[in-house]
Design a protein around this nucleic acid. Structure first.
Length: 211
DNA sequence: GACCAGGTCCTTG
DNA sequence: CAAGGACATGGT
């Protein structure tokens, strides 16, 4: 990890505008956030909100609710998020695992972030991004989330590195704080949604700034 | 109709 | 280890 990579990351962060919306960028209780983190894979957030709403109405937007409900019902409720068969199955596996291993989400509090991350990654359907989203947004742990937008913004800024490396670089460049990580990640996504897609990409201030 | 979305897993070379 | 396909719906 060179000093210059940390500086490059710092420059990217400094160029990100404040979020347009105030308040929590990823709303919901801890369990809903874990559920949403899985549902949001390769899917628009609007679809995830729709599915979370349906789960709430059905009274199963919780680990216990997911655990109890028939897989077939879950598939119907989360259908709009795509990959609904896998996701329903994986939500059930996640819920069963947390309930049996920790006795509930509260039982995760006394474990180290490293242990929790390793544990989440051992579950099917939970890769690095999803695990970090769960840790950072759901459990308040300082584990920086690197997603497709982060990778894209960094590449545009001349920082071409695999996601795993980018995670380390952001964590080295930022204070170790879950709130800071959440805010930076949120800004990256909000910025990228507007400026890193379609024809506006050419106007991107990050792409056009010199390192 | 093509292409993409806040990925992950499994199979091949 | 890199590359490619599968998983699936919904919006532009």
């Amino acid at each position: 990890m060179s000093a210059s990579s940390s500086a490059r990351i710092g420059r990217i962060v400094s160029l990100l505008p404040d979020r347009a919306s105030a308040g929590a960028w990823w709303p919901g209780g801890r369990e809903e956030i874990l559920i949403g983190a899985l549902l949001t894979q390769q899917t628009r957030w609007e679809s995830v909100e729709r599915a979370l709403g349906l789960l709430r109405e059905a009274g199963c937007c919780s680990l216990a609710g997911i655990h109890t409900r028939k897989q077939e019902d879950l598939e119907r409720l989360i259908r709009c998020t795509g990959f609904f068969r896998q996701k329903a199955e994986r939500l059930k596996e996640l819920s069963a695992h947390i309930l049996s291993t920790y006795g509930g989400i509260g039982g995760m509090e006394c474990r180290s972030t490293e242990d929790l991350r390793r544990d989440l990654l051992s579950l099917r359907g939970i890769g690095e991004e999803t695990a970090d989203s769960m840790l950072c947004y759901g459990l308040g742990r300082p584990s920086f989330v690197v997603d497709a937008y982060t990778e894209r913004i960094c590449r545009c800024a001349g920082v071409a590195a695999p996601r795993k490396a980018l995670k380390g670089e952001f964590e080295a460049a930022l204070p170790c704080d879950a709130g800071v990580y959440r805010e930076v990640h949120a800004r990256i996504v909000e910025y990228a949604k507007t400026w890193c897609a379609g024809k506006r990409c050419g106007e991107c201030r990050i792409r056009n700034s010199d390192g």
